[in-house]
């Protein structure tokens, strides 16, 4: 489904990703862990199509097609979803307009009929229940005045609406209380299927108790320095990153 080969990425002339290789097959969940500043969000953003990152070499295929050539909106419509580490506030853009546009753009792309306002509201309520989002939040502008946890829930809510085939969750668990963490994990698990995959960026093993990964990777200084099964997360929780740092 996703195939990253020898990916080098720079920002403002500074090399941040230094040869990433990663294969994500349908149905798999990959966790990416690693110390602050190692390049996890950079990788996530590059995959979503953020323009300020310059890919200096390497390739990314999504469903066999060149991903890096595509505009962010086309990647999204092809089924790639990024849950942002820091969701941005957009005063003046009402949540409902935004969500309805997003859902209908996806539907158009798939050749489906656009939802009417009524149909959309019904769908929205259903998904809102699922992620336990306060109904008032959809009366506001996008993320405006949302608490840290509400912003994260909003990301998962959008994911539930758009039903991506590849979800990239960038520290969606940070800032969530225990109950919210479970709800978010349930939201992700509800989407799990043999066709859908996820890349979960996290600092905490806790999330991986709920979203059980097939692989855990450690990203350090722009490279994946270790890959193993879910037990690697437990090991990190116990030992921290020092041993990785001395080895590399």
């Amino acid at each position: 489904m996703l195939s990253i080969k020898d990916l080098y990425v720079s920002v403002e002339g500074m090399e941040i990703l230094k040869g990433i290789n990663l294969e994500v097959k349908p149905g798999e969940v990959h966790a990416i862990m690693g110390p602050n500043g190692s390049g996890k969000s950079t990788l996530a953003n590059v995959l979503a199509g953020k323009e300020e990152y310059e890919v200096t070499s390497g390739s990314v295929l999504f469903d066999g097609e060149d991903l890096l050539d595509k505009a962010p909106e086309d990647r999204a419509k092809d089924g790639l979803f990024l849950s942002f580490q820091y969701p941005v506030e957009i005063p003046g853009v009402p949540m409902v307009n935004f969500l309805k546009s997003a859902v209908n753009e996806h539907r158009k792309h798939k050749g489906e009929k656009e939802l009417t306002a009524g149909e959309f509201l019904k769908l929205m309520r259903e998904k809102m229940d699922m992620v336990d989002m306060h109904p008032n939040l959809t009366n506001r502008s996008v993320n405006e005045g949302f608490s840290g946890g509400e912003k994260k829930k909003n990301e998962i809510f959008q994911m539930a609406l758009l039903e991506p085939r590849l979800a990239i969750l960038d520290e969606t668990d940070s800032g969530l209380d225990i109950d919210a963490l479970k709800t978010v994990a349930n939201g992700v698990n509800a989407l799990r299927s043999p066709e859908r995959s996820a890349i979960v960026v996290t600092h905490y093993q806790r999330l991986l108790d709920y979203i059980v990964p097939d692989f855990v990777h450690i990203l350090y200084k722009g490279k994946i320095v270790k890959t193993a099964g879910k037990e690697l997360a437990l090991e990190l929780e116990e030992k921290g990153y020092d041993w990785i740092k001395t080895e590399n």
């Binding site: 505009a71 962010p72 909106e73 999204a76 942002f84 957009i90 853009v93 935004f98």
Partner: peptide, 18 residues
């Protein structure tokens, strides 16, 4: 903000308009 909207499948022109 523009990137956020586009990352949800809203094309650039429409996102700018929003």
């Amino acid at each position: 903000a523009l990137f956020y909207l586009r990352a949800r499948g809203i094309d650039e022109d429409k996102a700018r308009l929003m």
